[in-house]
């Protein structure tokens, strides 16, 4: 008989070695941005924070255990998640109306899911650069949320080491492994997994924006919770 834990009162089976997020996978949607089932958990975005036996834990890193009482979809936890999402928006420059990722953006979709109707916090308007030096791939640092999915994809799947985070706190930023710091001098190619994994509009394939008509984009007609549950193995990949 398999082991089970409880999420919001629902019995969820799991296998030894799984995290709470892995156990929930196709059964219960736990909001997340830095988690992807193909890559080592990072636990940085904190959107997947749940209460395990009364304590706050990141579902993507916390091991599932027999008999755990997990609270996920509660008013208080979702209010905290909304605040976290608002902080992600104000720390960068996210102009959804003109962003080519709109409709396909996980950050935007999570914000809709959490009923985020304003920024709440004052906008930081940070000065960030756009690196368009690569012939096929572009980084708009304005939209980076430091989820490290590109870092992990480059290391774990592409066998390269193109990206890393540098600095701490508010000075944290994504850097490119090249003498010039520019993408054109890195080992990245357009077919790399790292070039396609960004949950926001920070890393983009050039000259492909707006080719998917409105109405056919990933989240045009489906909440991110439905998309996430339906694509538990690939997580939103198109």
């Amino acid at each position: 008989m398999s082991k089970t834990l409880s999420i919001d009162g629902q019995e969820i089976p799991f296998e030894d070695g799984q995290t709470i997020m892995q156990a929930a996978a196709a059964n219960v949607y736990i909001p997340h941005l830095c988690h992807h089932p193909e890559f080592t958990p990072h636990g940085s975005c904190k959107l997947c924070t749940v209460k395990v036996n009364g304590r706050n834990c990141s579902a993507c890193t916390f091991p599932a255990a027999e008999g755990q009482e997990v609270l996920n979809n509660t008013t208080d936890i979702n209010a905290d998640r909304k605040k976290i999402t608002q902080m992600l928006f104000v720390e960068g420059n996210h102009f959804c109306p003109s962003c080519e990722k709109t409709g396909n953006c996980q950050l935007q979709a999570v914000a809709y899911h959490l009923n985020m109707l304003d920024n709440h916090f004052p906008l930081f308007y940070p000065q960030r650069e756009l690196d368009a030096s690569h012939p096929d791939v572009l980084i708009d640092h304005n939209r980076c949320i430091f989820c490290t999915l590109c870092v992990r994809a480059s290391q774990e799947q592409d066998g390269k080491d193109v990206f890393a985070l540098s600095g701490r706190g508010i000075t944290k930023h994504l850097i490119v492994n090249a003498p010039s710091g520019k993408l054109k001098d890195s080992a990245l190619v357009a077919d790399d997994r790292a070039a396609h994994i960004c949950p926001t509009g920070a890393i983009l394939i050039k000259r492909t924006g707006y080719t998917i008509p409105i109405g056919q984009r990933l989240y045009d007609h489906h909440d991110i919770s439905d998309v996430s549950l339906a694509t538990a193995e690939t997580q939103h990949d198109q």
Partner: peptide, 13 residues
């Protein structure tokens, strides 16, 4: 400073 393919969507605002 923006990529050109953004223009039709950006300037319509």
């Amino acid at each position: 400073g923006r990529p050109y393919w953004e223009l039709p969507v950006l300037v319509q605002r």
